[in-house]
Design a protein around this nucleic acid. Sequence first.
RNA 1: GUCCCCAUCGACUAGUGGCCUAGGUCACGGCCCUUUCAAGGCCGAAACACGGGUUCGAAUCCCGUUGGGGACGCCA
Length: 473
Amino acid sequence: MTVRVRFAPSPTGELHVGGARTALFNWLFARKHNGVFILRFEDTDIERNRPELIEPILESLRWLGLLWDEGPYFQSQRFALYREWAERLLRENKAYKCYCTPEELEAKRKAALSAKLKPKYDGRCRSLTAQEEQEFLRAGRQPALRIKIPQCGTITVEDAIRGKVEFDFSELDDFIILRSDGRPTYNFAVVVDDITMGITHVIRADEHLNNTPKQILIYQAFGHPVPVFAHVPMVLAKDRSKLSKRHGATAVFEFRDRGVLPEALVNYLARLGWAHGDQEIFSREELIENFSLAAVHPSAAIFDEEKLFWLNQHYLKTGDPKRLGELLRPFLVKLNILSDAEAQAVPIEALKRMVVLFRERAKTLSELAEPACYLLTDNFSYDPEAVKKFLTPDKTELLRGLAEALTSVERFVASEIEGATRAYLESQGRALKEIAQACRVALTGRTTGAGLFETMELMGKDRVIARLRQAGA
RNA sequence: GUCCCCAUCGACUAGUGGCCUAGGUCACGGCCCUUUCAAGGCCGAAACACGGGUUCGAAUCCCGUUGGGGACGCCA
């Protein structure tokens, strides 16, 4: 039987890193077993079916390279199907009409909660007489459909990550499967979908473990075998609470916009809750090759940006300079260094040089693009502290001398520049060490950066000479 | 409140009863390299939540406690 898995997000307008990891595990599992990865939107809440809530999720998955083989399906387009399946349960006397109003139910729920009891439906409509039903109908009430669940016994969830998990029926109640307006509820729609889509493995977040017994009951009502369940642990914030906006970046796009590479995020997310011995760096192929549900660690994991950025730097250091150079363009604009048109016009050669020169100093594409302000433009500022410390009169005099010495360098490349500089310094009885930092400050306005001569080469002769001449002025 | 899940360094984790004086990675500290900053190399500090069992032997199995998380909707 071919493996069929699905990622079933609710359209929220963004793909959360936790959701991204769930999608990744599903995708890896499908690829590993030559299966089918299905995308489905859980939008029984009709409000949610809006393109602006859906498109970012699609785009995030594409950016991560988690392409789906089927779908996207939308529950909002399958209402007729759910109704049909629900009515089948009604006919078979496995479900019944409930005329209680949401207000009545809500009041009971609140009362139970404040009495410190588990809120459960009391089964009031389970055995209404025909006359009682007529009265409700006359009063204009529209019934919802509830499933009948056994009064006692237990149900066992076989979880591929957690093993057997047992629930007592006394914890469950006759829950609603079809709302009074005819729309299905989440638990019902999920099962009808998973059955009709032939899902073999349900890999989803831990928070759904409690829903699983309800869903198994629905499978049983339809006489359908259950799929394999695997509940993956939650992704938490640094303070161990649920990851949310107040913790900073949580969406895939936020990391993309900060200059994180998709392969870094994928690698990081894969290692969050899953491991293969001591290996940290995984190519996509290695991930597929080695992934297994049994190796998923059951406890919740904290999302650690530091480690993500370390991985990101690893991929910056080892990636193809041409590709990375191209990825730099939007960041030149975002950092207000160049206009859109200017950024497009920068020769790829220059971008490649920047990548090679600065990749060991940058954790993100954004950091990698930043030196362009002094390399490609004059649109940068001098750090006053650095100027004060290094651009002292004796140093600036040497720098002006160096400027003249460099005018005679024909091929303005690092090796030639270095030769000319060392020769000049020797003639002055000085060592490179003495002016290196002063030179750097004069050229870049700061005390940190790549090798001096490579920086000069990339900056270009005109800028170098002009900046050295006016050093300290 | 009830139910469910979880528990190894600050973080991610290895570990499936003896290979463990608990390994790797990030972060942290030190040293080396060095024109700066990085990168790199070497070294270091740092954990089996607690209490009972089971066993010749327990991080590993069982029970309890504590702590964290989740669920209890005509939300998904």
